[in-house]
Amino acid sequence: MAPIFIVLILVSIIALGEVLSLSSRAKIPTLLVVIAVTFVLLQTGILPESYIEASTFVAAGGVLVPVLIVHLGTMIPLSVIKKQYKAVLVTLIGLLFSVGAMLIIISLIFDYKTAVAGAGPLTGGIIAYIVTQEGLTEAGFTSLAAIPVVVFALQNLVGMPLTSTLLSKYAVSIRDDFSDGKYTDQEDNQVEGESKTKGLLLPDRFMQSNFFLLFLLFIGGALATWLGEITGINYSLWSLAIGIMGFALRIYPDKALDRSNSSGLAMVALIIVVVHSLVGITWDQVVSSLVAVLIVIVVGTTGLVIGGMIGAKIFKWKPTKAVPIVLTALYGFPGDYLIVEEVSRSIGRNEAEQKRIMDELLAPMLIGGFTSVTVGSIVIASILIGTL
């Protein structure tokens, strides 16, 4: 079959996942649909394993991983992080408790390798999963290959309903108590807003070019890969550092890959890399890993909740605000945004109340998700894989 038809099949599966996710307000995660449908097609032989490799997107996705991580480093303005430092610290506390609990408890019940296989994906998103999967493969632990993919597929089903329930309770307190004065201002909520490319080191006429932006991103990705080879430190950490520093030094604009109009195709390639990781995983492996996966999810989520409650105690926040911010590690963006939007609309009795709820919750929830999924999980996965 020609590669274009294979890619059409794979993109159709991704589109199906998006349709179901959007129709259910993200209650059915896109990646869960993609992983489940592809796995069934592979196991039944309807989609031959060789087809995924033949799509050529696997190689493209592998090349784009460091570039995408550099892009992630350009997504969080330092000014917003400073204003939302409590959300950052609460999230980090939750991540530390979650990872610590998994490394101790899962290692005692199973072994250390199983704990590492579950910790990376549970504390973050697609990049942390890929780093973990690659690390396990390189270390020769192919028997554990099913654990990260099943954790990655199922954690949303725990995180999003729990977040929605707790955040709804906190939203009621916002609605009913307008005297606390703890509402974020308009400026704090510009996490997803567009900022201008002016003020960058390179001339604006160059930075308006999609090709030139891609050139800069590929320089960052190549540099990170080279540094990873000569230092032994995972390339993902170098990519993230280059993106953050490049953005801070005004070499990169914010959301650099989005500005090059290339993020959509890059994400398709990245998802196909995830799909490719299903090749060779059997139904028996998935079934045999379910017990470990469920324990990883329970222990990891419990660690996030405990860490969030401790963070709430330290910063004098209500647990119903702090814990949902930490739980964004289980799903990230756009799930965090969609949950806040849904909660504000369902709890607020009028437009003014809905705006108050949205203003209070949006910035910390987005920053929590960025901190865990974009930064924390990549660091955690890279460090843990390096210990195998």
Rank of each mutant, 00 (worst) to 15 (best):
L216Q: 13
L216G: 10
L217H: 12
L217R: 10
F218H: 11
F218G: 01
G220W: 03
T225L: 11
L227S: 09
G228R: 05
E229Q: 15
I230T: 13
T231G: 14
T231V: 05
T231A: 14
T231R: 12
I233K: 03
N234H: 14
N234F: 12
W238P: 11
S239P: 04
S239D: 07
I242D: 03
G246E: 01
G246L: 02
L249C: 10
R250N: 15
R250V: 14
I251K: 06
I251G: 04
D254W: 11
K255F: 08
L257N: 08
L257S: 11
D258Q: 02
G264E: 05
G264M: 08
L265S: 15
A266I: 06
A266L: 01
A266V: 09
V268H: 01
I271N: 03
V273Y: 08
V273L: 06
H276W: 03
H276R: 01
L278D: 07
V279I: 07
V279D: 04
G280S: 06
G280T: 03
G280D: 01
T282N: 04
W283N: 12
Q285W: 01
V286G: 11
V287H: 04
S288L: 12
S288M: 13
L290W: 07
V293E: 09
L294K: 09
I295L: 15
I295F: 13
V296P: 14
I297T: 08
V298Y: 03
G300S: 07
T301Q: 09
T302K: 05
G303Q: 02
G303S: 03
L304S: 07
L304F: 11
V305F: 09
I306R: 11
M309V: 03
I310S: 01
I310T: 09
G311F: 08
I314V: 06
I314M: 04
F315G: 00
F315P: 03
A322C: 08
A322V: 07
A322R: 02
V323C: 10
P324Q: 01
I325H: 02
I325A: 06
V326D: 06
L327S: 02
L327F: 07
L327D: 01
T328S: 09
T328K: 08
A329V: 02
Y331P: 07
Y331C: 06
Y331K: 10
F333W: 00
F333G: 00
P334L: 13
G335T: 10
D336E: 00
D336A: 09
